[in-house]
Write a protein that binds this DNA or RNA. Structure first.
Length: 347
DNA sequence: TATCCGTGGCT
DNA sequence: TAGCCAAGGAT
């Protein structure tokens, strides 16, 4: 490690010791001690939940999961439908499917592996999460690169090459400034800095412990970095969902394990997610009445979903779900919106 | 390398 | 307000 790299890591760790955020999945006194097997479980669980997701959104879900399933063994023993329902609303549902697969693999082998390489082989753990768990939960010296680190490093070293091409150079610089000791604290410090000081827009350089080391600040325009490729336009989709009600219950299906909202309970629909637009064909014959439409914006498409009340007998797999317990069905946000529309139309 | 996969908050 | 953004992974 060069002298300037040590200057950076020392300054950041010193800042972290004073200003680290108090988060439920972090160190004592609020969380178990590192020697407790509950500690790697909580670190792993929080890291998976935090993928592409804000701290504020994760907090209530983390509390619910730890209360329902205090250990990885408890989670491993859970029914998939329970886990998916508990995850409902948090998004990126493949994370929940892989979370359960991972819990079962870990329970079967008697605990989490401790090396980055072994962690990388578990479902749902990519380069980032494997490195983060190795460093934070097991004290390994691993180089942790997430969007915060990319932003901080791009500014520190004034890397003007656009993402994603700049990732190689960013990783090399991150490797240089990651200390041998306290790599987990260093990673969390970079994330705290990125979330609170070195923010994407309007960075608060006057509060930054690395301001004196920052090449982008010296050049005068840190907010310009990192440069990103322009996004592609978001396609517009149309679809229909069907509200089939009987005796105070609504017909729900479970979506296939892959693809959009995979594994989640849902209203039956016309296949809009598998095709660009749905077929608009109802799953059963019978009288139809439009209840209105719901707008929903996903990462890669915007959807207008028409909700149609259907009089008829459903066929295929599904379940009658009591309306008074609809909140417990674990519908993803799109279908939760549709259910609210139906209940409002119903008066 | 590029694309797909949620959601809610912020500006 | 429409777009941007957030502790990415799988394919």
């Amino acid at each position: 490690m060069t002298a300037s790299a040590k200057t950076i890591s020392d300054a950041l760790l010193h800042w972290y010791d004073a200003y680290a955020r108090d988060l439920p999945w972090r160190n004592p006194p609020r969380a178990p001690r590192p020697s407790d097997p509950a500690w790697p479980y909580r670190v792993w669980l929080s890291e998976v939940m935090l993928q592409q997701t804000t701290v504020a959104a994760v907090k209530p879900y983390f509390a619910k999961f730890v209360a329902n399933w205090p250990t990885v063994e408890a989670l491993a023993a859970a029914e998939e439908a329970e886990v998916m329902a508990a995850w409902a609303g948090l998004g990126y549902y493949s994370r929940a499917r892989n979370l359960l697969k991972c819990a079962r693999a870990v329970a079967a082998r008697g605990g989490f592996p401790e090396s980055k390489e072994a962690l990388r082989g578990l479902p749902g753990l990519g380069p980032y999460t494997a490195a983060a768990v190795a460093a934070i939960a097991f004290g390994q010296r691993a180089v942790v690169v997430d969007a915060n680190v990319e932003r901080v490093v791009a500014r520190l070293f004034a890397i003007t090459e656009p993402l994603p091409a700049a990732r190689k150079a960013i990783r090399e610089r991150a490797e240089e400034i990651t200390p041998e000791q306290r790599a987990g604290d260093f990673a969390q410090a970079m994330m705290d800095l990125g979330a609170q000081i070195c923010t994407a827009r309007d960075p608060r350089c006057l509060l930054c412990p690395l301001a004196g080391d920052c090449a982008a600040r010296a050049k005068g325009d840190p907010a310009r970095l990192p440069v990103k490729a322009p996004r592609k336009p978001k396609p517009e989709r149309q679809g229909r969902a069907y509200w089939i009600e009987r005796d105070g219950a609504v017909w729900l299906v479970t979506r296939p394990g892959n693809g959009m909202l995979g594994g989640m309970r849902a209203l039956p629909d016309d296949g809009w997610s598998a095709q660009a637009d749905g077929s608009a064909m109802p799953p059963v014959p019978g009288a139809q009445l439009s209840l209105g439409a719901v707008r929903h914006v996903f990462t890669h498409a915007s959807l207008t979903l028409e909700l149609v009340r259907l009089e008829g007998e459903p066929d295929g797999d599904g379940e009658w779900w009591p309306l008074e317990r609809i909140e417990e069905a674990g519908l993803p946000t799109l279908f939760a919106k549709a259910a609210r529309l139906a209940l409002a139309a119903r008066g």
